[in-house]
Every structure is written in structure tokens, then in C-alpha cells.
Design a protein around this nucleic acid. Structure first.
Lengths: 337, 337
DNA sequence: GCTTGTGATGTAATCGATAACATGCATGGA
DNA sequence: TCCATGCATGTTATCGATTACATCACAAGC
């Protein structure tokens, strides 16, 4: 494989000149430039990344930690992030953590090894190996949380107003006459879940039905949605509406209803969360709270890049993006009993 | 940030000893080892990746190029790849190409810059910057194709028997009495599409209905499935069955049918391809050809790792994995006309 | 007592680029 | 004519690890 020295020798110049041709072409005589370029092409030379990175102390890489890349919500966020990174000359290191702390730690270490310049994480756990770094540099740390934010983390973050979004969804159900509403929420430990539950309770309190809420916790997957919905439907007093904290869980809930011969939305209304692209292709099409998934990824990268531009202090430590309640066919008036 | 020199100084040893403590602990006196480890912990030292990589000429990174990460088929393959890579101590660089040649070229260049040790690509174009490399090293090149294989590429590959899989699907439809079968195929230029079409034609020829096949080409997305299906359904003689080359297109086709008040499978049968996790949660559940998505990713990484172990010649240049026809509710007997 | 072998550790070259600083040459103004 | 200036290019230290080789101490064998 060609090195800068080989190029320099063949072109009869010094390595510095070759380096300049690539980084600051205007500082090199056109004649020399042409000659060097010709050699570069002939040898198929490409600057060694490790050497460059060692010298400049920058990698132009970003680790993105997601709990599960096969979940289209995360995949969409990732896609937005990839777009924004690509434009800025950065590339992404994929960290599919499967929600396992040891994997999270492993990917977080890439920051310490200077294997990447920054880290974006979707999820609520900040690996402990980074707490030292965060303690020292605070909001200046090259770390951005997306979606599942809690102020205790002490890092920048990009998310929607989860409380408000949940309130919106519950208000829709209330306006349709539903009083017995079940929640298929996320993991109890997640700040995001807590935020949404607060929003739900707020709406329910105002309507005076807070004591009739039934709260269950799942892990956002289709299967957990099916299981939770099955439990709820088989209980003595089944809910007339289910608000699921992910579209995947809503898809599982729909399946559970179908299994029992229940017709959605006549017998039961279902609301999802995220608006992944399969939501509107469910039968009936799923009512859901849309999150701007691509934008979340794009803005997370933008925020991180601001932090990376040395001394770059962002205007704000967090960014709240707009959500949108999309009403489709899976919600309807509460059935009379 | 701590360097190996700082650790060495604090521990009162040489840098070589520190390096040995990390790489070959058994070659260091237990006493010294303990002392060095203590300093490492105290300083939070982690070996600089660029320096290590420059010295060893290995990065333990693999670029994975996919046309669209938000497509769950690719996401699942990626997940399998991530798993296998992680176990072997490798990490993945995400290359979402959006099917754009210039992006493919950009990610392929990472190989030349030694930014990654190997490349896995899903798609059928091998970027031209790599043709030189492939010409020189042939099947030894650290490059593996997944899914969309053509022998002209001259690189290793992992895929299912696409011709056979397509034959299986068409035979199912034929056995149910369908004679007017439409195809929602992939891009014409893709070898994978050609393979599957060959399989389709084979089955149709045997049954004597080859001349009644209607072939359309899409890009695997839901929207293109909808558009193609709409065109077919609005034609004078609509098909009684549609075989889609991706589940996404099948989901779009289902939506197009619903729009027109057609009941699947009574009025029309639909077969997908891939068996992404949304397939069985369609209404009706989708009959489809299952590809072992995770396994494809796992085996692609395994094959690549074999190539990377220097001089490692794999037993075979390609690996054919099993597919499976999953019959669900979206297929039924052909309607009498 | 001397040689040889072995194990623990140190010294220093090396990987391949970048960039600060040095050099040398041409130009222009006094 | 001389010197200051600026431009093109070269020289070399540096980034932070790994590792071949050198060194040293000590034990075993003759």
C-alpha cells in the first residue's frame, strides 16, 4: 500500500508538499500540484487514517448507541444522524446495545480510547466509565442524549415534550368518551416513561378519571405489547382504550384484539407512539403520536458537532422538537356498555 | 488525557512494561502488574486507538454498506452482523448509502485509507475504487457481498438460493389455482432480481403459464409496492395473485387492495419476501419467503473474519443459506371468474 | 568459579501522517 | 547594491502506542 513517502519520492518532492497538495492545494505551485496529483492517482494513494488521526487527535467519527437497531424507530433516528454526519464529513460507529449495560460500557469506552470524537446515546443509562468525563467537562462533554432525557445525566439532549405528547393522546381518547384507559408504558426506570405518565395523569386528573387508569410496563416490543394487551383484555373489566408508548406495542395490542375477535375501533381504541412507517399501514391504520425521528437524529448530530468545535458552547443544553398527534382509524367513540 | 508514558512514569516502570501488562500480563511479575494496574485505574488510562492502529496496522472495524437502514430487512442483517462482530472484538461502521454510488464510493474509500479492515456490502454495485484491489487480491480481498450476489464481482458472498425461493413461492400460488400471477420485482439491474425472475419463469414454464406472467419493477419500498399494485389492479385483466420481492412492497400492495375494497385472500392472494417482523402482524398475516436475516449478517462477518486472518482462505467463496416459505393468511385459492 | 540459560524489564526504532520552523530564491523599494 | 518581504518547498519533531532487541540478575550445571 502506498504511503506519503512513496508519493513524495516518485514526484521528487518532500512529504510536506504532498500533504499540502491534499490539504492546502493553493499553497503549492500549480505545476508541482499537477505532478503530485498524477503520482497520487498512479499509485492509488490514500492517506492512512490512523496516522492522520494520531497526529491531529481527531477521528471524525461518532458512536451512536441504540438499544435495538432492528426497531424502526431507532433505525429512523440513526438514518437522520447518518445524513447529518455524512454532510459534515463524519461517519457513524454503530453501537447496538440490546439494552445491556456491558455493551453500553464497551461502546462508551471508544470515547476514552479516542476511537471516536463524540457519542450519541438513545436510552437513559450513561455508562459509568463516562461519569468522570462528564463530571469534569459537564455540558461541554462530547455526549448527546436523544429521546430519553433526564436532567441528572448532565449532558446535552434532544427530545420531544413527552409529557405534553402523552397529554395530547389521552385528551383525544377522553374527547371520544373513553373513561377506562389502559397504558402500555415503557420500562419503569426510564425517565421518558415517567414523563409520559406524568402527562397522562395530568389529563386524567383534569377529567376526573385518574383513579381509573390502568398502568402496565413493557419493553416497547411487539411481543410485549401483545402480552400486556392480552392481560388487560382478559381481566374482569377490560379497558375501552389502550395508549401504547410505542407503535410496536400498539401493533402487538392490535393483534391481541384480533385474536379475541374484538374489532378496533368499534370495540376498543388503540393509540400508538412514534408513527413508524408501518403505523399507517396497519388495518385499521394506527392513531399515533408522531415523533420527528429523522430530525431527532439530525439535531443530535448537529448539537454534538457544536460541542466538538473546540470551546463550542451550544446556545442551549437541550432541544425540544415538535410532536404531532396523528388521528387515524384505530380510535373511535367509546362503546356503550 | 492519560498516555502510556504518564502511566509508566507514575508506576516507575517503562512504557514497554505497561504495554505488556495490558497485552501479555503473564510476562510481568505479579507485583509489578498490580502496581501498574493501580496507576491505570487511578489515571483512567485507555490506550489511544489511533496509535495502536498505526502501529499494528489493524483497526478491528468493518464497514457495512446498506442501501437503507430504515428498512427492517437491512436492519436485521445489520443486527446479526453487529452480534458476530462484537463477539470477535470488532465494531461496525455504518454506511447508509441510499443507493447512491457516490456515497458507496465514499464508504469504500475507508478501506483504502485503512480506516477499516474489511467491507460488507448489501447491494450489487462494487465501488470502482475497489476494483483495483479486487483485481489484485481476488477472492482474498477483505470484501464480502451479502444477498445481492453476482459472480462477476469476484468477491466472496453470502445469500440464499433466490431462484429456488422464487420457484417455491410461485409453485404455492400455482397449487392454489392461480394462473394470472403478477410480479412486483426489484430493480431490473439487480442480479438478485434476475435470479428470482429466473426461478419464477421456471415454475411458470413447467405449469405452462409463462406467457401470462406480468412483470413490474419497483424499489422494494411500501410506496412503490402500492403504486405497482394500483397499476395492476386498475388494468383490464387484474391478476389473481401478486408475488412481491419484498415484504414492504407486499404491505403496499395490501394497502392498494384495501383501498379498492378487494378482500385478501378471497379476491386476491399476496406473497411477500423476507419475513420481516411486521409480516405476520399484517391483517391478514402475510405469506412470505423467509430469509434468515440475522444469519446472513452473522455469516457475512464470519466469512470476512476468515479472510482477515492473514492468508486465511475460506473453504468456499460463497455460502448459500436456507430460506423458508411461510404460508399465512394472505394467500388462498384463486377466485373463480 | 565460570558459563549458560531464563525470566523480568528497559531502550529505542517504528508505524504514516501533519505542521512548526527553516531555507532559499525572486522581487521590489530605498 | 542591499535588504526586507513573501512565496514555495524542505527538514524534522511529534502524535502514542507496540515490539524486537538489549540488558541485567539470578540460578543451575559443570
Amino acid at each position: 500500500m502506498a504511503t506519503i513517502k512513496m508519493v513524495a519520492d516518485h514526484a521528487g518532492v518532500s512529504t510536506a508538499t504532498v500533504s499540502r497538495v491534499l490539504s492546502y492545494p493553493e499553497r503549492v505551485q500549480p505545476e508541482t500540484r499537477r505532478k503530485v496529483r498524477a503520482v497520487i492517482d498512479a499509485l492509488g494513494y490514500a492517506p492512512n487514517f490512523a496516522a492522520k488521526s494520531l497526529r491531529t487527535l481527531r477521528t471524525r467519527k461518532i458512536v451512536v448507541m441504540v438499544p435495538d437497531i432492528s426497531n424502526p424507530f431507532y433505525a429512523e433516528v440513526l438514518r437522520g444522524a447518518e445524513d447529518a454526519a455524512q454532510v459534515a464529513g463524519y461517519s457513524l460507529l454503530l453501537g447496538d446495545t440490546r439494552d445491556m449495560p456491558e455493551r453500553e460500557a464497551q461502546y462508551a469506552d471508544m470515547l476514552l480510547r479516542k476511537e471516536a470524537d463524540g457519542l450519541i446515546f438513545l436510552g437513559h443509562r450513561l455508562p459509568s466509565s463516562l461519569t468522570k468525563l462528564v463530571a469534569e467537562t459537564g455540558f461541554q462533554s462530547p455526549i448527546v442524549n436523544a429521546c430519553d432525557f433526564s436532567s441528572e445525566l448532565g449532558v446535552c439532549s434532544v427530545h420531544i415534550d413527552n409529557a405534553r405528547a402523552a397529554t395530547d393522546a389521552v385528551q383525544l381518547l377522553l374527547s371520544m368518551g373513553h373513561r377506562r384507559i389502559a397504558l402500555l408504558a415503557g420500562p419503569e426506570t426510564s425517565p421518558l416513561t415517567r414523563e409520559r405518565l406524568a402527562g397522562v395523569r395530568h389529563a386524567a386528573l383534569v377529567a376526573g378519571v385518574a383513579d381509573r387508569l390502568v398502568i402496565t410496563h413493557g419493553d416497547y416490543t411487539i411481543l410485549s405489547g401483545m402480552a400486556l394487551a392480552s392481560g388487560l383484555l382478559d381481566a374482569e373489566t377490560a379497558p375501552t382504550a389502550m395508549f401504547c408508548f410505542s407503535d410496536e406495542m400498539a401493533i402487538g395490542a392490535l393483534a391481541a384484539c384480533r385474536e379475541r375477535g374484538l374489532v378496533c375501533p368499534d370495540d376498543i381504541s388503540i393509540v400508538g407512539f412514534d408513527d413508524v412507517r408501518y403505523a399507517r399501514f396497519q388495518n385499521p391504520p394506527l392513531t399515533t403520536v408522531r415523533q420527528p425521528m429523522n430530525l431527532i437524529g439530525v439535531e443530535a448530530v448537529r448539537l454534538l458537532l457544536t460541542l466538538l468545535r473546540d470551546g463550542g458552547k451550544p446556545e442551549r443544553h437541550w432541544l425540544t422538537l415538535p410532536h404531532d398527534l396523528i388521528v387515524r382509524g384505530s380510535t373511535g367513540p367509546a362503546p356503550r356498555r
